[in-house]
């Protein structure tokens, strides 16, 4: 039963994370390879604040603001770059941030990590048990889904898709594409931060090793597998991939298999990504109205 609950909590957290990336990658066409950085900023901010006895509700808000703010800071220089170069810049940012987590020992305790992160308390209600936490993550997943859906279906969402399709044409219609790309990255970062907050208070222990490139690849894979540029794709992708990843953990395999299994999983993910690119680039769910 606990395994079942754990699985769903992880699926929901990664759904939020993937939905945030989907806004940038699927709808705006920005290949952000450093998305884990904003997950990490949300996670560390909320963890550090609550460890210093700041109420969860406040820490939660500050964490989201911090994620959005760093998204804004990153986007100003990096969004002036085109296509692949934006990807490389964000990749670099993700790694730089991990180094900051690792080396600013006074703040983050470096590789030792932060243990004992408290469970969230909202309106004097403590989300401590698995079912309670599941409710919290599920609720916030629904909220995220609805907010992003409103954005996607609004004129703003249409403009973002316009950027993905053709920036020059959009500019010829009198829109400043740069400003809209910043909005996309900031909103995406805020929701990535939200996923980070939920994750950090769930595991109650974080260290820089949790925010590596392979996490970005996982969430990238979730979006691509599920179907980028679709409303349900990230949820679908998170369900399939997290189910696969987390259930391996509970197969009770001999421990000496561990050292083979971890790299093997990466190989499977990498292979899956290549397979998808060749045979089903649109993912499990197809963007609406393709063709006639």
């Amino acid at each position: 039963m606990d395994l079942f609950l754990h699985l769903w909590i992880m699926i929901f957290i990664y759904s939020i994370f993937a939905m945030s990336l989907n806004l940038e990658m699927g709808y705006t066409g920005l290949f952000n390879f450093g998305h884990i950085a904003f997950f990490g900023i949300g996670a560390y901010t909320s963890a550090l604040l609550t460890l210093h006895q700041i109420p969860f509700a406040l820490a939660f808000v500050v964490a989201l603001v911090a994620s959005g703010f760093f998204g804004f800071l990153l986007s100003i220089p990096s969004l002036r770059l085109r296509g692949d170069y934006f990807g490389i810049a964000t990749l670099g940012f993700g790694e730089i941030l991990r180094m900051v987590f690792q080396n600013e020992v006074w703040l983050t305790k470096g590789p030792m990590g932060l243990p004992g992160i408290p469970k969230p308390i909202l309106f004097s209600y403590r989300f401590a048990t698995l079912p309670q936490y599941l409710l919290l993550t599920m609720g916030l997943t629904i909220v995220t889904f609805l907010i992003l859906r409103i954005i996607i279906r609004s004129p703003l969402g249409r403009t973002l898709r316009g950027i993905r399709e053709d920036e020059i044409v959009l500019m010829a219609l009198g829109k400043n594409a740069f400003h809209f790309k910043i909005k996309s990255v900031v909103i995406g970062s805020v929701f990535a931060g939200l996923a980070g907050v939920l994750w950090t208070h769930y595991t109650t222990f974080i260290s820089p090793g949790d925010f590596t490139l392979s996490e970005t690849i996982l969430v990238l894979l979730i979006v691509v597998l599920g179907g980028k540029g679709t409303e349900w794709g990230p949820l679908m992708g998170a369900f399939v991939l997290i189910f696969f990843q987390e259930s391996l953990r509970f197969l009770k395999l001999p421990t000496e298999w561990g050292r083979y299994l971890a790299p093997l999983q990466q190989m499977i993910f990498g292979g899956l990504l290549i397979f998808l690119m060749i045979y089903r680039p649109e993912g499990l769910i197809r963007e609406k109205g393709e063709g006639r």
Binding site: P155, R158, T159, R161, G162, E165, D166, V169, L170, A172, L173, G174, K175, E287, G289, E290
Partner: peptide, 18 residues
Amino acid sequence: NIFPSLTVMENLEMGGIS
């Protein structure tokens, strides 16, 4: 010079976004 994955209607609406 059009947005291929948007519908004709959406393309026209994009013309009026500003």
